[in-house]
Amino acid sequence: MNIATNTTFINFPFQLSPLASRACHQRATLSLSFPPLPLSKPAMSSAAPVTELSDESDFESLLSPDGHISICGFGSLLSERSARSTFPDLANFRTARLNRFRRVFAHVAPVFFERGIAKPETMEISSLSVEPCEGETLVVTVFEIRKSEIPDFIKREVEFRFLAVLPETLDGKAFDFPAVLCARYSDEEFFDNRCKGNKEIYFQQYGRWNIDKIWRDDVLPCRVYLRHCVLAAKNLGETAYNNFVDHTYLADRKTTIRDYLATTGSGIMEEQPPESLKHRYGG
């Protein structure tokens, strides 16, 4: 049985005010205060509880005795090089297993537009998120960052739902401490909770790229990003690679990445990123 997040889309686009129009040319600054959600909010039933993190103090409750917090990587953060480009001082980068989640290319990422690698004409504009799904298992990476890096992490992933999950080693031993996972959110929740119902804040981040929905079921993977993720998984070994191509889905939640690369997406793995992005998106 699949247990997916209920998604309700709000009607976009909005009419831009003069303030919002000016804001479209600036980098977004979203509110980091979260709605007052209860700390123990199960996302699904399982032996390992899943908790939604509602504010920075909830993140701090996951700190280890030495003041670090664990992060789960499932897309670009499968690459240690990518992870270190964001968190230069990360520690203990390793692979792990996460049960009852699947990867889905259903998240529109503004950064692909900023870097010139989105293809809106073919809807190849999506990044990865994860969502609960009974019967699925993911090979992920886990690493630690310092307490002082938590605010920047929240800003970087502000459109996601933050969950505390308990990964396992590849041989099935539960971790000692939970890790933070960036899971699928919804447009309605993002607008109401992260944007505080403010249309101008939404347009600071998305409006300048004509993005009227963040979480969609009619998009395809950004080609450069997909290639990067596949290479990153391959660099982790055969188990991680096979898990990625067989347990990562297009937005239809039927087509695996293995099938996609063998059909409609054939040729993606032979394409090279723009010269300026070869290091960042090199696997």
Rank of each mutant, 00 (worst) to 15 (best):
M1I: 13
M1Y: 00
T5R: 14
P18K: 12
A20R: 03
H25E: 14
R27T: 14
A28Y: 12
T29K: 15
T29G: 10
S31F: 09
S31H: 13
S40K: 07
K41C: 12
S45Y: 07
A47C: 09
E56I: 15
I69L: 11
G73R: 05
L77C: 07
E80P: 04
E80H: 12
R81W: 01
L90V: 04
E114R: 14
I125E: 02
S126M: 02
S127C: 09
E136G: 02
V140A: 10
E144N: 14
I145C: 08
K147A: 14
K147N: 13
E149Q: 15
K155L: 10
E157Y: 06
V158C: 15
R161H: 08
R161K: 14
V165H: 04
T169C: 12
T169M: 10
A179K: 10
L181E: 05
R184E: 11
R184D: 01
F191A: 13
K199W: 06
Y202T: 08
Y202P: 08
Y206V: 00
Y206T: 00
G207M: 09
W209C: 00
N210V: 05
V219H: 02
V219F: 01
L231D: 08
L231T: 03
N235I: 01
G237E: 10
E238P: 00
D246S: 15
I257D: 02
Y260E: 01
T263Q: 10
P273S: 07
P274V: 05
S276W: 01
H279A: 15
R280D: 11
G282A: 04
G282F: 01
